[in-house]
């Protein structure tokens, strides 16, 4: 098992390099550079940047070198344990992603923290709705829960989330004024106690989390339904029933436990989603997360930030796949690889 894990880890190295090289090449292929926009979008500029200054600036930041040289430099920085310095914000990328006080604290209000929090809430909400529906649907195919799953949840799935977001803002936020809809906390946050702060953040997260959650419900419900149905139809369940075990025991002790196996795959699919922010939902609700940061970084050609977010995404995807595989191996001896 340990050898297997190690081998998988080693295999991840080249994959990781390939991913970052492709991302690097892609951002370099896009015209412009971190300073080309600044040449003209300048406040206070009666004239644009002096061409010599501009060349000098590119040189100083190594942006006049071929892309593979720049990639090599970036890899060297990464190897030294740093994500580099953001071109536009002019502070370490680790601070940009993980917060001002990194590694001291304040993680929750950093882009990564904010996105993790929002996505975690959204995922929990999604699972809380979809799992029971999927479960009941499998127990009674064609029953009320099944029709709900295949009808209503699919209808939700087809609604574009920017439309739902605007609708929620106008109805819940403006018309009924039940929930706040901008940012992740109110102005009075600093003066609140711990529990009041938690409630404040949850209230701010409610609408964006709902927007992120409803789309995946149909998928998860279907997934659960199929996994449980398959498990219910298998030989060991028939055997358990034949042995005269009570139905509850058959369901919870045998069928449901085995239905968890494919759910590990689902876990591997959901985990990476936790760190990637939704550009649309985050910007409509002014949620200070990774999606907005990424968008901004792309517009300002802030290469170190784009790359750091991509690296983070790559690491999490590779990590979750590995985790899912290992969990599979641990849970099901038949698929254990040697």
């Amino acid at each position: 098992m340990a050898a297997y894990a190690l081998r998988r880890l080693l295999l991840m190295g080249p994959t990781f390099l390939l991913i970052t090289a492709v991302v690097f090449a892609a951002v370099k292929l896009a015209p412009g550079n971190p300073f080309s926009a600044a040449r003209t979008a300048g406040e206070g500029a009666v004239r644009q940047m002096n061409p010599a200054d501009y060349q000098d600036l590119l040189h100083r930041y190594g942006l006049d070198r071929p892309w593979y040289v720049q990639y090599g430099r970036w890899l060297a920085t990464l190897a030294s344990g740093s994500l580099g310095i953001s071109y536009s914000q002019r502070r370490p990328v680790s601070q940009v992603l993980f917060g001002e006080a990194f590694p001291g604290g304040g993680f929750l209000s950093s882009p990564l923290g904010a996105t993790l929090l929002l996505n975690l809430l959204a995922t929990l909400l999604m699972l809380a709705v979809a799992l029971p529906i999927g479960f009941s649907a499998a127990l009674k195919p064609g029953g009320a829960a099944d029709r709900l799953a295949s009808g209503f949840l699919y209808a939700l799935y087809s609604l574009p989330n920017f439309w739902v977001a605007v609708l929620l803002i106008l109805v819940v936020g403006v018309h009924f004024r039940i929930l706040p809809f901008i940012g992740m906390r109110s102005e009075a946050f600093a003066s609140l106690g711990f529990w009041e702060r938690a409630v404040d953040v949850l209230r701010h997260a409610a609408l964006p989390a709902l927007c992120l959650a409803y789309g995946g419900m149909a998928y998860v419900a279907r997934f659960t339904r199929r996994a449980l149905l398959e498990s219910l139809g298998s030989d060991f369940v028939r055997a358990a029933r034949a042995r005269g075990l009570p139905e509850g025991r058959v369901l919870w002790g045998h069928a449901a436990r085995n239905a968890l196996l494919p759910m590990i795959t689902l876990l591997g699919l959901l985990l990476p989603g936790l760190v990637s922010g939704s550009v649309i939902v985050e910007s409509l609700f002014a949620w200070p997360g990774m999606g907005q940061l990424f968008m901004k970084a792309v517009y300002s050609r802030d290469y170190p930030v784009i790359l750091a977010e991509s690296v983070l995404g790559a690491v999490v995807v590779l990590g979750s796949t590995l985790l899912a595989d290992l969990l599979y191996g641990a849970a099901d001896p038949r698929v254990r690889l040697e």
Binding site: A38, G42, G44, A45, V46, R47, Q48, M49, D53, L57
Partner: peptide, 10 residues
Amino acid sequence: DAVNKRPTFA
């Protein structure tokens, strides 16, 4: 990085 200030003083 006074990219847009320098030219005003050319």
